[in-house]
Design a protein around this nucleic acid. Structure first.
Lengths: 237, 237
DNA sequence: ACCTATTGGTGTCCATAAGACACTATTAAT
DNA sequence: ATTAATAGTGTCTTATGGACACCAATAGGT
């Protein structure tokens, strides 16, 4: 049989296939707390419980997995998050009552201010304090996925400035340090934090100053390549 | 509609679903070279080309994605690799001619000696020098997946001793250093390498010595927790 | 207009772990 | 016993984070 004949006859539905979803753990910082976006499920299974924003791939619309995840996030936030990366893929026979399922999980960051207005207009989406998830009964294995995302984010806070994407495009160094401290759950030495960022030339000084407060802090923005930069040493954990 | 009713009526095949495969990048070290296991494809598409070992999930047999990947690897190696981790998930409309596809990719390590006999008995599987893949026409996006796996492995060689799993259960420190050097493509300071491993107490001294060579090197084995250990500083890249 | 509190930002010394590299130790072969 | 080769150590230097005191700028009260 030629490849052409093979492809003509091929039909995915002739085989037993798992169901595939994309789900995202979207973090932000607000009021000195780390928050994660959850959606109240309107459909079975786990109807009425809180779960991660996500859903099925639209084979006709989505070109890649990341696009599918972004499309689903955009339904809740109206904008695409400035940072998104693949976290892990969970799959198994028992994690979804509908059958063998695969969830391609993403971890993303967004500035609270950049999407809060739209989220409030979407009745089923809400920011939840990460520290207070213990009380909630989350759908599927979404609690475990959030915990994995948190671990990864904590690691990144030790050796990168990826957490900057939880802030608006322009931000101050004290703001960035605060975000890191919130993620890590402990204070960081100001001098160490600033020194390594300056030495690696990761930020662009916009020349502007933040108006509020006492002394005015300089406003910076990320260089494009800075999200991939990795310091050779970790901060103390 | 109750959840029970919903689940009774639910059928995955009522929806357009992507096809899902698991694929593994299995590395080993032999003759001072990094090698990757490839399989000559017996079926369409890409019949006759080399590709990563893997395949479809068997919904009746596999409980998780990792189990599926291990089962597929075991068909070629006869044993499960001592180290396997999820690498990334590739998905898209165009990467597989059969349609929208998702590949859940794993990266794994194994000792050459532990599986070479079986691999030679499997006619379609063969170790390939990682440095000489340039000439080969690999199936799907498998070349890109191998490159991602390589990058990750190089990072791990800088801040962990995960590469130890490319060696037999008992190994010497010079052997381990050599594996790291092969992965990184450059020499490492012996003292630095040994000092950090000793300080972190990552290995168990078996008390045995390796027979061959001049002075006999001590044989060590991994502590269980050592694969997750991360040094606070990277070696120089 | 000046003082003070508060937050932003810097100077500088210390601690830690890697780099460099010379040295010692153990073995096999001659 | 000597030599060559490989295993393993001593120790000084270097780089970068930690600690913490200090200086700088701004708003508000007097």
């Amino acid at each position: 049989m030629s490849e052409k004949e093979f492809l003509q006859k091929y039909n995915v539905k002739d085989f037993d296939v798992p169901l595939v979803t994309v789900d995202s753990v979207l973090f932000t910082c607000h009021e000195d707390q780390l928050k994660v976006l959850l959606v109240e499920r309107s459909n079975h299974p786990h109807q009425g419980q809180w779960g991660l924003p996500g859903g099925f791939i639209d084979l006709a619309v989505d070109k890649t997995l990341e696009e599918a995840a972004k499309r689903k996030l955009k339904e809740k936030t109206s904008i695409e998050p400035p940072y998104i990366e693949q976290l892990e893929c969970k799959g198994g026979a028992d994690r979804d009552k509908r059958g063998w399922s695969v969830s391609v999980c993403f971890s993303a960051l967004i500035a609270y201010q950049d999407c809060q207005a739209h989220i409030e207009s979407v009745s089923d989406a809400k920011w939840h304090f990460v520290n207070e998830l213990g009380l909630l009964d989350l759908a599927f294995d979404h609690r475990a996925i959030i915990n994995t995302a948190l671990e990864r984010l904590r690691q990144k806070a030790l050796y990168s400035i990826v957490p900057a994407y939880a802030l608006p495009e322009r931000f101050t160094l004290p703001e960035l340090q605060k975000v890191h401290e919130i993620i890590l759950g402990q204070p960081i030495q100001k001098k160490s934090f600033r020194r390594r960022i300056e030495q690696a030339e990761l930020l662009i000084d916009t020349g502007e100053k933040q108006a509020s407060g006492k002394r005015q802090a300089s406003l910076y923005k990320m260089k494009k390549s800075s999200s991939e930069y990795r310091f050779v040493r970790n901060l103390e954990a």
